[in-house]
């Protein structure tokens, strides 16, 4: 299926959870903020939230420093 990740269209397998997508991209799930179709997804829902064809996803991966 096709999803839009941070503004770019990509092809991904189906089914795919947010936690699996994060793992595919080597992203630490404790350091990300995720918005799916403009809706905030809480970290405790990453494993149970499945993506659908056409979804638009914004993932912010925070790095340390401040």
């Amino acid at each position: 299926m096709k999803i839009t990740l941070n503004g770019k269209e990509i092809l991904v397998g189906n089914p795919l959870s947010i936690v699996a997508l994060l793992a595919e991209h080597d992203l630490d799930s404790t350091r990300v903020a995720v918005e799916l179709n403009r809706e905030v997804i809480c970290a405790n829902a990453f494993a149970t939230t499945l993506l659908s064809d056409g979804d638009s996803l914004e993932i912010i991966h925070f790095v340390g420093g401040g």
Binding site: D28, E35, V40, I60, F62, V63, G64, G65
Partner: peptide, 30 residues
């Protein structure tokens, strides 16, 4: 904040609690 997990925690929390109130976060300035 300094720690990335704290940054993520705050963003999730505030965006859920007050989506109508702006949030300005930071990442990457070392």
């Amino acid at each position: 904040f300094d720690a990335p997990d704290q940054k993520a925690m705050l963003v999730e929390n505030w965006r859920k609690a007050h989506p109508e109130r702006p949030l300005v976060a930071a990442s990457g300035m070392a």
